[in-house]
Amino acid sequence: MLEVTDLDTFYGRAQILDGVTLRMDGGEVVALLGRNGAGKSTTMKSVMGLVRPARGRVRFLDRDITGRPSHAVCQMGLGYVPEDRRVFTELTVMENLEVGRQAPRDGVPEWTPERLFALFPNLAEMRNRPGGRMSGGEQQMLTIARTLMGNPRLILLDEPSEGLAPVIVEQMAQTIAALKTEGLTVLLSEQNLHFARMVADRAYIIEKGRMRFDGTMAELEANPDIRDAYLAV
């Protein structure tokens, strides 16, 4: 479904990604692991067309999307949930959802605000609250819901558990599991194993812009050396 080959991305003169390669099949939940500053967000932004890779290819649904503008990428069914939430603080919950809304997509169950409120019951109680007056956890739920309004086939979730209380993290894991049963493909980035363990089938590990590991979660668990070398404990 998603095929990233040999991606090199620069910020100015600094090379951030160095030959990043990853692939995902439909229906998978894959974790992209790495320490702070490893290049996880940059990978996602490069896929999404928010930064332009200098070299390499991104293919989505067997089409080359390298360097396409992000709105076009999104319209193909690739959803993006940024790491620092970025809810529209002036807009209400309903309006935030409206911004993400796109036409229904073949073969994807259509998301409506009501269906999303069933998935995120907290949000249902604050339909008309401005995004700026919500807690961090609520904002995180809202950004995910907002992206789902675009009826994506695949979503890029950038550090969804960052800064959340343990209970909320637990909830988040359940949500992702529920999305998986809906047939959604998920690439999520994380700094540590804890959250990935709960939801992911496979994992990649990135360090200083290079892929260091590619395998199933079970293989990763069996390899404590790799874990200790590249992940925060």
Binding site: L50, H71, C74, P82, R86, F88, N96, V99, G150
Partner: peptide, 21 residues
């Protein structure tokens, strides 16, 4: 109007949500 208000705050995010800026 909703899209415009959203773009006033964060136009890049509006683009990543599929709106042609």
């Amino acid at each position: 109007g909703t899209l415009v208000r959203a773009a006033t705050q964060d136009r890049e995010m509006v683009g990543a949500l599929g709106v042609n800026q």
